[in-house]
Simulated assay, not measured.
Amino acid sequence: MSSTVFLILALGPLVLVLAVIAVQRANAVDDAYTGEVTARWVSSSTGTYGTTTRCMMRIRTDEGQELAVAVDGRTYNALGVGDRVVKTPGARWPVRSG
């Protein structure tokens, strides 16, 4: 019985963290906004599995919100500071508005 309790206590926080990450990702896909890229940067960290690189953009929405958005490398290279962007519900990344 004590091993069952230990297993639940050990795996409970991991399951909770994974659930929170899944909900955040699902909400990010449903977001919609238009705005302008005001900054962009790449951050990297070295961990157990090697170097991890994150491409980030700061977007000021037309409503005045400041968003820090993690994007893939293709989106990062396609958009620059000053570009107008639009993010539609269901799309993973913002794209240049045209």
Score class of each variant (00 low, 15 high):
residue 77 N to M: 07
residue 41 W to M: 07
residue 32 A to Q: 15
residue 2 S to Q: 15
residue 62 D to I: 09
residue 64 G to M: 08
residue 10 A to V: 15
residue 21 I to H: 11
residue 27 N to K: 04
residue 80 G to F: 02
residue 85 V to S: 03
residue 67 L to Q: 04
residue 90 G to V: 05
residue 19 A to C: 07
residue 22 A to M: 10
residue 58 R to P: 00
residue 3 S to V: 02
residue 30 D to M: 14
residue 45 S to T: 07
residue 15 V to E: 01
residue 89 P to Y: 08
residue 88 T to I: 01
residue 26 A to H: 14
residue 28 A to C: 09
residue 12 G to P: 04
residue 7 L to C: 09
residue 90 G to K: 02
residue 12 G to S: 12
residue 76 Y to Q: 03
residue 23 V to A: 11
residue 75 T to L: 08
residue 60 R to I: 00
residue 17 V to Y: 13
residue 34 T to H: 02
residue 10 A to E: 10
residue 78 A to G: 01
residue 62 D to H: 12
residue 29 V to I: 14
residue 75 T to H: 11
residue 59 I to H: 04
residue 72 D to P: 01
residue 4 T to Q: 10
residue 25 R to D: 12
residue 96 R to V: 06
residue 17 V to G: 02
residue 52 T to P: 01
residue 97 S to I: 04
residue 62 D to R: 15
residue 4 T to C: 04
residue 72 D to L: 04
residue 94 P to M: 02
residue 88 T to G: 01
residue 23 V to S: 06
residue 62 D to P: 09
residue 62 D to C: 09
residue 85 V to T: 05
residue 56 M to G: 02
residue 48 T to S: 14
residue 88 T to E: 14
residue 26 A to I: 11
residue 45 S to V: 01
residue 96 R to C: 01
residue 18 L to S: 13
residue 97 S to E: 07
residue 95 V to A: 12
residue 52 T to L: 12
residue 50 G to D: 05
residue 98 G to N: 07
residue 21 I to F: 09
residue 76 Y to C: 04
residue 30 D to W: 04
residue 15 V to M: 13
residue 39 A to E: 12
residue 85 V to E: 03
residue 13 P to Y: 06
